[in-house]
């Protein structure tokens, strides 16, 4: 017995020595290359992590929504997402959380939370155009806000974005296709965020009286360099991202731009 203890002590000494040797060489961790790809084998938790990145990045969700802002709902333009993971299951009778969230992303204006105006773009369409996997990641993340994620990439949401389906008109506007002002406004989905015929703000300021507030030059700047001046109470960065995603900046011709500016400057309210 005494021997066994001694030998065991000796074994600990020897292995400790080799462990020590292992500590004296350069210590380097090699990480796998970054990859944005979502893996079919990702767990819900991993998916949620990816979803978090999408929400603040490609999805541009945080341009409009807040998460746990704690502000009075009536002061918000769009619903706060804090606790949505728990609340989602209770919003519409007969819809579980996943179904509700999926519907909210694929058919956002089908159900409008009380006290808010419709105005959310369809997420699987341009300009945001998340693919089905990315939407699942977003749902997984939303579920973590007050709940446990259950979605994986194999979950069937009941929606399929047909990649080959005819894209929305906005996405295919050819360069310099000669649209008039309202046509540009419609093609590039400006109305998704900007109210053109009423005073209420959506994701962005209402434009119904923009002609009386801004000069042509200011309107021009507000379109081509939206972040140069940010209207009070709105976030920067949203418009360059969303408008850019429609291909506006690469496709718009100078005639079209002039038409758009003229159209907008004619909006003087009333």
């Amino acid at each position: 017995m005494k021997n066994a203890v001694k030998i065991f002590g000796f074994a600990i000494l020897v292995t400790a020595f080799y462990s020590y040797v292992g500590q004296t060489v350069p210590q380097k961790i090699t990480y796998p290359p970054e990859s944005a790809t979502l893996g079919a084998d990702m767990s819900s938790a991993e998916l949620a992590e990816a979803g978090e990145t999408i929400i603040s990045g490609k999805g541009t969700c945080l341009g409009c929504h807040t998460i746990g802002s704690g502000a009075d709902p009536s002061s918000l333009r769009f619903p706060d997402l804090g606790g949505i993971g728990a609340a989602a299951a209770t919003r519409v009778e007969g819809q579980d959380a996943v179904t509700y969230l999926a519907k909210a992303l694929y058919e956002p204006n089908d159900f409008i939370a009380e006290g808010f105006l419709p105005g959310m773009p369809t997420i699987n369409r341009p300009p945001i155009g998340l693919n089905d996997d990315e939407i699942k990641a977003v749902i997984a993340y939303l579920q973590t806000l007050g709940g446990e994620p259950t979605v994986t990439l194999v979950t069937d949401l009941g929606y399929t974005t047909e990649v080959s389906a005819a894209p929305t008109p906005g996405a295919t506007a050819a360069v310099g296709s000669g649209l008039d002002g309202p046509g540009v406004f419609q093609t590039y989905l400006c109305g998704t965020c900007h109210n053109i015929d009423a005073a209420g703000a959506l994701a962005g300021p209402s434009l119904y009286d923009v002609g009386s507030r801004l000069s042509n030059a200011e309107i021009y700047e507000a379109i081509m360099d939206p972040d140069a001046t940010i209207a009070d109470g709105f976030a920067g960065g949203v418009m360059p991202a969303t408008l850019g995603a429609t291909g506006f900046y690469t496709k718009i011709s100078s005639e079209e731009l002039r038409a758009l500016v003229n159209y907008l400057s004619a909006q003087t309210g009333g």
Partner: peptide, 10 residues
């Protein structure tokens, strides 16, 4: 997926 340090492996 990352490769740990040699100290850790030791």
């Amino acid at each position: 997926a990352f490769t740990p340090t040699l100290g850790y492996a030791s």
